[in-house]
Simulated assay, not measured.
Amino acid sequence: MAVADPTLTVRYSLSLATVPAAVPEARRSVRAELAARGLGADHPLTDTVLLVVSELVTNTVRHAAPRSPRTTLRLDFEPEELTIRVHDRHPHCPSRRETPHQDGSGGWGLSLVHEMALLAGGTTATQADPDGGGKTMVVRLPLA
């Protein structure tokens, strides 16, 4: 089994207050970071990455804020893969819904993230914190 060279991974991390203004802040920051790494507005993954970031940060704002005043967004750029991680300290690990909420309040976010990742040839996962007090939503997208 080959082990990835950690020196080839470029990490970008952003700590955000878990408030509505975090969503556009995350998008702006990620857009700038993508451009700095050669993934400009015309790159095929840019829109997918921005949508994934928007949906995952929105979920932390809508569902985790009372128990997680901050959320962390991390991008790991490797030679052939971009990994997006959004972490909060709310213990609930959500799953994709088959149907939206009956009251029209949403429910499609994780399904949309999953479908966008699949279309790009990537994967999604939810990782619970070892202490059970939070989780990280992980999306891996191929860069090649």
Rank of each mutant, 00 (worst) to 15 (best):
A4D: 12
A4F: 12
D5W: 01
L8M: 10
L8G: 07
T9C: 11
S13E: 15
S13L: 10
L14Y: 01
L14A: 03
S15N: 11
S15L: 11
L16I: 06
A17M: 10
A17F: 05
T18P: 04
V19E: 15
P20V: 01
P20L: 06
P20D: 06
P24D: 12
R27H: 13
R28E: 15
R28C: 04
S29D: 10
E33P: 02
E33G: 01
A35D: 14
A36Q: 09
R37D: 00
G40V: 04
A41Y: 01
P44C: 06
P44M: 05
L45R: 07
T46I: 00
T46A: 12
V49M: 06
L51A: 14
L51R: 05
L51F: 10
S54L: 11
S54Q: 13
T58Q: 14
V61L: 08
R62W: 07
A64G: 11
P66E: 10
R67K: 14
R67A: 13
T72P: 02
D76V: 00
F77P: 00
E78Y: 03
E81N: 09
E81A: 09
L82D: 00
T83I: 14
I84K: 02
R85H: 13
D88T: 08
H90V: 03
P91H: 10
C93L: 14
P94W: 14
S95V: 12
R96I: 15
E98G: 13
E98V: 12
T99C: 05
P100C: 08
H101R: 08
Q102C: 04
S105Y: 12
G106Y: 11
S111V: 08
H114P: 00
E115T: 13
M116E: 15
L118R: 14
A120D: 09
G121I: 02
G121M: 04
G122Q: 03
A125N: 11
T126R: 07
Q127G: 02
Q127S: 08
A128P: 11
D129A: 12
D129E: 13
P130R: 10
P130E: 10
G133V: 03
G133I: 03
G133E: 11
G134M: 10
K135M: 14
V139K: 02
R140L: 00
R140D: 04
L143Q: 01
A144Q: 04
